[in-house]
Write a protein that binds this DNA or RNA. Structure first.
Length: 367
DNA sequence: TAAGCGTGGCC
DNA sequence: TGGCCAAGCTT
């Protein structure tokens, strides 16, 4: 691994800072979280933007801030409503961690987001990137905020060939940023690097001819910008077979289940479902046995009305979906509910189960 | 360190 | 169309 000192040797730091920040001042996009530097709003936006596109985040951010405009309002909010506000955004542990961290700020920091690396980085869900982003953008502290954009942009500008998929490489880039960040305007420096990655120095086909820091770019001068950054591929995902059902009782109410508080889609609601295997008898038999043990419910299953595939980042669900009628009473608990269809909108569902409901309604309307 | 953790858009 | 990608964090 190279040393960051060697990497920035002969690099015109002052001119680079000036060119980058001037460009950002002129060309930055108008985004809702840039209206002010309220540390809480900066924080919320940074958490939402983790692994998520700007265009996707914008409506979620506006709605979330409208519902929970302050540290106090989010600290006191019902978790069910918080999850509902995050529904469809993915990586749901982000928002459970955010609320837990906001509660800590409310209780232990007088409702003020801490402004030191030591304090803020210890909050739940606040890692190295978010620490640097909030410190630099909200408080003007010259800390690195190294995300995928920054690694791509700097790997090209400085011709760095380390594998950016490795955790160790992020730490190298943090060292590099520490050695070139503007002490006068760390906010615009960090945001400028990210903005450049988002609209000019894109993953494929970077617009080098429009780049404000082209003169500083070793990758461009060497004609290797398309080979950078180096990023190893991750393993392909597994496929899981699931059987699920929309089960209604004689009152027309539907059975829903709350997922466990840890792991995939934690604390979200779903229609009853179980993983089925080749060996353990027919798919339908396995599902009926599951209903008996998990819900103490008997049901009359019709034929599957849909096959839904849902692709996650690390796995694929193939879901056979049955329509069915409950033939016994179901005891309701904190994780098992019988609700009217019109009430489903009060519960947060993963997209896969939103799709189950959508197809179910389409089939019902035709019948 | 590697794997788990969502979703939608893009070509 | 399936793989890749997008302002990462936790364990």
């Amino acid at each position: 691994m190279k040393q960051s000192k060697d990497i920035v040797n002969h690099f015109n730091i002052n001119q680079f800072q000036h060119d980058l920040i001037s460009w950002f001042e002129k060309e930055q996009r108008t985004l809702p979280w840039r209206a002010d530097q309220d540390p809480y709003k900066v924080w919320v936006s940074e958490v939402m933007l983790q692994q998520t596109r700007v265009d996707t985040v914008i409506p979620y951010f506006n709605n979330f801030i409208q519902q929970f405009p302050s540290i106090e309002s989010l600290a006191n909010a019902d978790e069910e409503k918080v999850l509902k506000a995050w529904e469809g955004l993915g990586y749901y542990s982000r928002v459970r961690n955010l609320q837990a961290a906001v509660k800590e700020v409310h209780e232990n920091y007088g409702g003020k987001v801490p402004n030191t690396r030591e304090e803020i980085s210890q909050l739940k869900g606040v890692g190295p990137y978010t620490t640097g982003a909030v410190l630099s953008i909200a408080y003007g502290v010259p800390e690195p905020a190294v995300d995928g954009n920054v690694m791509r942009v700097l790997s090209r500008i400085l011709s760095i060939w380390e594998d950016i998929a490795k955790p160790k490489t992020r730490r190298l880039f943090e060292e590099v940023v520490r050695s070139i960040i503007s002490k006068e305007n760390p906010s615009f420096f960090n945001q400028g690097l990210m903005e450049l990655g988002a609209i000019v120095c894109t993953p494929t086909s970077p617009s080098c001819l429009l780049c404000p820091v082209r003169e500083h770019c070793r990758g461009f001068h060497e004609g290797v910008q398309d080979q950078l950054p180096v990023k190893s591929k991750k393993k392909s995902s597994k496929t899981v077979q699931l059987t699920a059902s929309v089960l209604t009782n004689e009152d027309g109410k539907v059975l829903i289940h709350k997922r466990p508080g840890t792991g995939l889609l934690a604390n979200l609601w779903e229609f009853p479902n179980v993983e089925v295997t080749e060996e353990a008898g027919s798919e339908q038999e396995q599902f009926l046995a599951y209903l008996q043990t998990h819900y103490r419910a008997k049901a009359d299953l019709q034929k599957p009305f849909a096959t839904i595939q849902h692709v996650f980042s690390h796995l694929v669900w193939n879901i056979q979906v049955y329509r069915g009628t409950l033939e016994s009473e179901v005891e309701q608990t904190s994780t098992i509910k019988l609700v009217d269809f019109t009430e489903l909108e009060n519960y947060a569902f993963p997209v896969s189960h939103q799709n189950i409901l959508k197809v179910y309604k389409e089939v019902e309307s035709k019948a």
